[in-house]
Every structure is written in structure tokens, then in C-alpha cells.
Amino acid sequence: MRDSHGEPAGYIFNAELYCPAHIADALPTGDGDAYDGWAVAAGIEITAEENLDEIAIAFGIDRDDEATFDSSEFPKVIRHGQLGGECGACGAPVGE
């Protein structure tokens, strides 16, 4: 979900903030989970945005209209200066 503001500073998912490097690991991609089989395989180089775009398309999620889904279902974008906090995975600043 790139726009005139550039790349996302991070994401909010399940009431937790994540930096772009860790959002894919936060998605429920295990057996029987919501996004079963959609984990990024070892050796695959893909940006967080590309990964989220692919999953959103496959599951009918309109990332351009964040009012159509809840952040407990799919990650929402955080822009720089929009919200401050720390990544739930690594503790790095998100959105500041």
C-alpha cells in the first residue's frame, strides 16, 4: 500500500505494532491458521508490502480501503509520524 507518503513505517496487527522486517512473522501462517501456507519461504526475497499485497489479493482484502477490515484480521499501515511505539518482535521504534 504505497502512496505519496512513501514506504510504511510499520504495521498494526492484533493490537501490536510491527516494523516491516517482522510483520510477515506475525501473520498466522501455520497449519490451520487464517493464512495457512502463506509464510515467506527461506531464500525468498520479498518486501513486506509485496508479501502483504499477495496475501490480500488471495484472500479478497482491499488494502486500499482499510475501513473494510479490522487490524485483528489483517495488518494496517502506519506512516511515519502517525503513531509511535515499538515493534512487538524486536523493540525497534515504529512510526516515529
Rank of each mutant, 00 (worst) to 15 (best):
I57P: 00
E49W: 07
A41N: 01
D33R: 12
G81K: 11
T47A: 00
N14P: 02
P8E: 05
A48C: 09
Y18K: 05
E66R: 13
A58S: 10
G10R: 08
H22D: 06
G10L: 06
G6V: 15
G32A: 01
I44H: 00
A21E: 13
N14S: 11
I46Y: 00
I12H: 04
A21R: 14
A24V: 13
H5W: 08
I61F: 12
R79I: 08
F74I: 03
P8D: 01
R63F: 08
A58M: 02
A21G: 06
G32E: 01
Y18Q: 05
Y18R: 11
D65A: 10
G32R: 08
D65K: 14
D70H: 13
A48Y: 03
S71D: 08
E16T: 15
A15S: 05
D31S: 14
G10V: 08
A9M: 01
S72F: 12
P8Y: 06
F69P: 00
A24C: 12
D36C: 02
L52C: 00
F59R: 11
A15G: 00
F59L: 03
Y18G: 02
G37L: 01
K76S: 02
I61H: 12
L52T: 00
S72G: 09
E49Q: 11
N14D: 07
L52F: 01
P75H: 09
I57V: 14
H22W: 02
D33N: 06
I12Y: 07
P28R: 15
D53S: 09
F13K: 11
G81A: 11
V77T: 14
A56T: 05
A48E: 07
T29P: 04
I23T: 07
A42E: 07
E73T: 12
D31C: 09
E49H: 05
E7N: 14
A24F: 06
G32W: 05
T68R: 13
A56K: 03
D53P: 05
A58K: 13
F59Y: 15
E50A: 14
A48T: 02
G6M: 14
L27Y: 03
A56Y: 05
E50H: 12
N14R: 15
H80W: 08
D33G: 04
D33L: 08
A41V: 12
I61L: 15
A48N: 03
P28K: 13
D25N: 15
A15M: 03
E7G: 04
A48Q: 03
P20E: 04
E54D: 02
I46N: 00
I61V: 15
A42W: 06
P75I: 11
S71G: 04
L17P: 07
D36Q: 07
I78D: 01
A15T: 03
W38P: 00
P28A: 13
A15F: 08
E66I: 14
F59P: 04
A41R: 15
A41K: 14
F74T: 05
G30V: 02
I44G: 00
G43I: 04
T68F: 01
E45V: 14
A21C: 09
E16W: 02
A21Q: 13
E50N: 11
G32N: 02
G6C: 14
E7I: 07
E45L: 13
H80D: 00
P28W: 06
D64M: 10
D33F: 02
A24D: 04
D53C: 04
Y35M: 11
S71W: 13
T29G: 05
W38Q: 02
D36V: 01
R79D: 04
